[in-house]
Simulated assay, not measured.
Amino acid sequence: MPDEQMASGPGAPGAGGDTGSAARPLDSIDRDILRLLRADGRASIRSVAERVHVSRANAYARINRLIEDGVIRGFSARIDQERAGYGASAYITLKIVQDSWRSVREKLEELPGAAHVALVSGDFDVLLLVHTSDNRALRDLVLTRIQSIPEVLSTRTLLVFEETDLEPEP
């Protein structure tokens, strides 16, 4: 964020997300700050303060608290995957051995192109979003890398034909 840049990244306070305790309740100003930062993570403290009608010191303190509480996990850019060279995207569902979530998650997080991983309920256990350069790389990722994880019992690949990032409400 220009004008009093906020720290982010692996070494930043709260960058890990989970602080081990529940975050303090959010008020309407906190929610407005989150909405603004979600729409523009590069917004300056001054701009945020003006738009939510608080002082810069108050906005700065609130954003720092949201980071420290793990509510804000970091700042990032929204990427057009295709323009960035990732022409194939897919959601991959996995059935895994019971009680193996943590070890499977660690292995999935190391995969090239892994963008999001979630433990879910239903007909499968894990939902993984991946971006690869092309279908050949996607095939290799699924058949060679993911299916070779011993705790993975089965996979199903759902090709993404088009993606749209949803913008926060104005």
Results as ranks from 00 to 15, higher is better:
11 G>C: 09
109 E>R: 15
85 G>T: 03
62 R>V: 10
44 S>N: 00
126 V>T: 02
40 D>I: 13
135 N>Q: 10
126 V>W: 03
31 R>V: 04
165 D>W: 11
158 L>T: 11
103 S>R: 12
146 I>H: 06
45 I>G: 06
28 S>H: 13
114 A>N: 07
23 A>K: 01
169 E>F: 05
104 V>E: 08
21 S>A: 12
16 G>M: 08
16 G>W: 10
97 V>S: 14
101 W>G: 03
15 A>R: 02
104 V>F: 04
29 I>P: 00
15 A>E: 00
32 D>I: 09
28 S>P: 01
71 V>D: 12
100 S>K: 04
126 V>K: 06
103 S>L: 01
138 L>Y: 02
93 T>N: 12
14 G>I: 03
135 N>L: 14
38 R>A: 06
91 Y>A: 05
127 L>V: 04
135 N>V: 07
139 R>M: 09
79 I>L: 14
108 L>D: 01
56 R>Y: 03
155 T>S: 14
120 V>K: 13
85 G>E: 03
7 A>G: 12
145 R>D: 15
125 D>K: 05
139 R>Q: 10
23 A>P: 10
32 D>A: 14
67 I>Y: 07
71 V>A: 10
43 A>L: 07
44 S>H: 03
12 A>D: 11
103 S>Y: 04
70 G>Y: 07
58 N>M: 11
107 K>Q: 15
111 L>R: 06
128 L>I: 01
123 D>F: 13
76 S>K: 11
155 T>E: 15
100 S>T: 09
53 H>Q: 12
90 A>L: 06
83 R>T: 01
159 L>I: 03
92 I>S: 02
157 T>G: 04
106 E>D: 15
13 P>C: 02
15 A>Q: 02
149 I>P: 14
164 T>D: 14
6 M>I: 05
152 V>Q: 07
65 R>V: 11
49 A>Q: 04
82 E>L: 06
164 T>C: 10
3 D>W: 09
29 I>D: 00
59 A>Q: 02
78 R>E: 13
33 I>E: 02
154 S>I: 06
46 R>D: 01
155 T>H: 08
125 D>A: 09
94 L>P: 01
11 G>H: 15
74 G>S: 06
164 T>S: 12
79 I>T: 11
69 D>I: 03
135 N>M: 13
118 A>N: 13
80 D>A: 15
25 P>N: 04
152 V>E: 07
29 I>A: 10
81 Q>W: 09
164 T>F: 11
49 A>N: 05
34 L>D: 01
3 D>V: 15
102 R>I: 08
70 G>L: 10
150 P>W: 05
31 R>H: 10
140 D>A: 12
118 A>Q: 14
98 Q>W: 00
127 L>K: 09
87 G>E: 12
63 I>D: 06
135 N>C: 05
96 I>A: 02
161 F>N: 13
72 I>M: 05
68 E>C: 04
100 S>G: 07
2 P>T: 14
29 I>N: 02
124 F>Y: 11
41 G>P: 01
45 I>F: 02
122 G>E: 03
27 D>G: 15
